[in-house]
Write a protein that binds this DNA or RNA. Structure first.
Length: 258
DNA sequence: AAGAGCGCCAACCGCCAAGAT
DNA sequence: CATCTTGGCGGTTGGCGCTCT
């Protein structure tokens, strides 16, 4: 291990905060095309003003094709509680037992729901001087809160930057147009590349910064409308990107049937 | 109606381990 | 072996939305 630690990126030049649809698309498209051998250089090559770590997190937690979203099943929650008893806060280890679930998600669920539930049950059990402490006793699913959370989530975040489309459906974007969960039209990245009318991601660095990449915004605008249609160039003014982004997200949501 | 408080969760931060040089 | 780089992990936080008063 080294002495000091160089910052993973120049913090002054990276964007922070929630990811936009545009950024997600860029990341997905790049990884689909080139994979992610090097997270550090990925953002630069993909034309993202993000830290490599941030890209990795975004991919692992939300954009990965096999990531499972939505409420945890009672079985999953039971598994988490059981594994937590033996593994402690080893979220990645716990996650490895729950296909499609991420350590971050499990950590959140534990901290927000399961911990309280287990504590409550434990307290109840202690006050009743109960000798039983098995997880099956600890776990009662009658107050399954995650369902409400999910419903709320889907209602309120249908077009949020972080879940504007179903990331789990973005599997093999270049080929797959339907997924098993339904007939969902997936945005074909090759089609996007064609729209861009250029080699998707040249081996070198993409020089186009987000705020002036008119073609890219135009492309996204086209994605946001169904069917695709010629469209006047969108605003290149960064201050207007949010609105533009919302429109694109909404269109994208419709496009994907989310 | 509006402000305060709370819950949830996506994302960031810092540390550590492993691999590369 | 020492140093450097990168990926991964777990803890924490900021912001948003909902509920309560």
């Amino acid at each position: 291990m080294g002495k000091g630690r160089a910052p993973c990126c120049d913090k002054s030049k990276v964007k922070k905060g929630p990811w936009s649809c545009e950024e997600d698309l860029r990341l997905i498209a790049f990884i689909q095309k080139h994979g992610h051998q090097n997270w550090r250089s990925l953002p630069k090559q993909a034309g993202l003003l993000r830290c490599g770590k941030s890209c990795r997190l975004r991919w692992i937690n939300y954009l990965r094709p096999d990531v499972k979203r939505g409420n945890f099943t009672p079985q999953e929650e039971d598994t988490i509680v059981k594994l937590h008893q033996t593994l402690g806060n080893k979220w990645s280890k716990i996650a490895s037992h729950l296909p499609g679930r991420t350590d971050n998600e499990i950590k959140n669920v534990w901290n927000t729901h399961l911990k309280k539930r287990v504590m409550k049950k434990l307290e109840g059990a202690t006050s009743r001087s109960s000798s039983s402490s098995s997880t099956s006793v600890l776990l009662s699913h009658t107050d399954h809160t995650s369902k409400n959370v999910t419903e709320k989530e889907e209602a309120t975040k249908s077009c949020s930057p972080t879940s504007s489309y179903n990331a789990s459906s973005v599997s093999n974007l270049s080929q797959v147009h339907e997924i098993s969960s339904g007939n969902v039209n997936i945005v074909d990245m090759d089609w996007i590349f064609q729209l861009m009318n250029e080699e998707p991601f040249p081996s070198g660095v993409i020089e186009t910064p987000l705020e002036c990449d008119v073609d890219f915004w135009d492309m996204l605008d086209i994605i946001g409308s169904s069917p695709p249609h010629p469209h006047p160039p969108p605003n290149s003014d960064y201050s207007k990107l949010d609105n533009h982004s919302d429109a694109s997200c909404q269109g994208l949501s419709n496009e994907l049937g989310v």
